[in-house]
Amino acid sequence: MEDKRSELKKIIMDTRTLPTLPNVINKLNALSDNDKASVQEMARIVSSDQVLSARILRLANSPSYGFYRVSTISNAMILLGVNVVKSLALSSSIFAIMEKNSVGLWEHSLGVGVAANLLARKLGLPECEEIATAALLHDIGKVIVSLKCSEAAKEIQDLVDERHLYTMDAEHEVIGTDHAEIGGWLSKSWFLPDKLSEPIAFHHDVDKSQNHRIKTSVVHIADVLIKASGFGNSGDRYVPVMQQIAWDTLKLNEQIMTELVTEIEDKLVEVRNFSLEMMSE
């Protein structure tokens, strides 16, 4: 089994065929780590991608921010903040990869993104945007498995259907690893920061998250909630066990949970319409 795992790791990490992030994101990452970089420079890079520019302007002009008539990318970047723009760039390119692959999984990820964002805001956590991005990406490992080893992916799904296993257990049986670990490898190869790669790699095992346990807990709880809600299709038939450690880390209680479920479901009504629109486009 160990052979299979390392063999798979080799296949998955084969950079020639790995889905790559658009150049824009790598450049943005490099610039934002550099203290001397100016917003104007970053705006120039963003402007080279017209889809991304349009999304950023749309977000900056959306009523939820309350600014009106933002027409330049550099103004939008100042208003929204560099981190929001980076998350937006990252998530819109991940959508492009996921959307083609599986609408059900894409919807599930979108739902978990929404749930994580609501939970993070409700708890007043810092870096809500990063948490939502990590939540959007949490199942990226599943996309890679189905892209890179479509036979194994089918075998896993058959196991899930026939023996009523959790996807995680079926993955361990077939490929000797699981989508969370694969997502972790992938985020390393994309040089994503720890605050994204940890929640991706440990969203089924919060205990192992050392540096970003709060973010990992939010993503874990959001994943459980969306599976309970039945929104989208993660490939799993059953709601996973909600981990006590995540519950304790976030100091949750029944009342917060009840309010959160209503908020999430209200928001999902919109998301449902949004994903229908996206599909018809």
Partner: peptide
């Protein structure tokens, strides 16, 4: 059906009731 495997866990049982 979705809760079939995890409803005996206290946290999941609470979540089930909320839903």
């Amino acid at each position: 059906m979705r809760f079939e495997k995890s409803r005996q866990e206290p946290l999941n049982s609470m979540l089930y009731d909320i839903y």
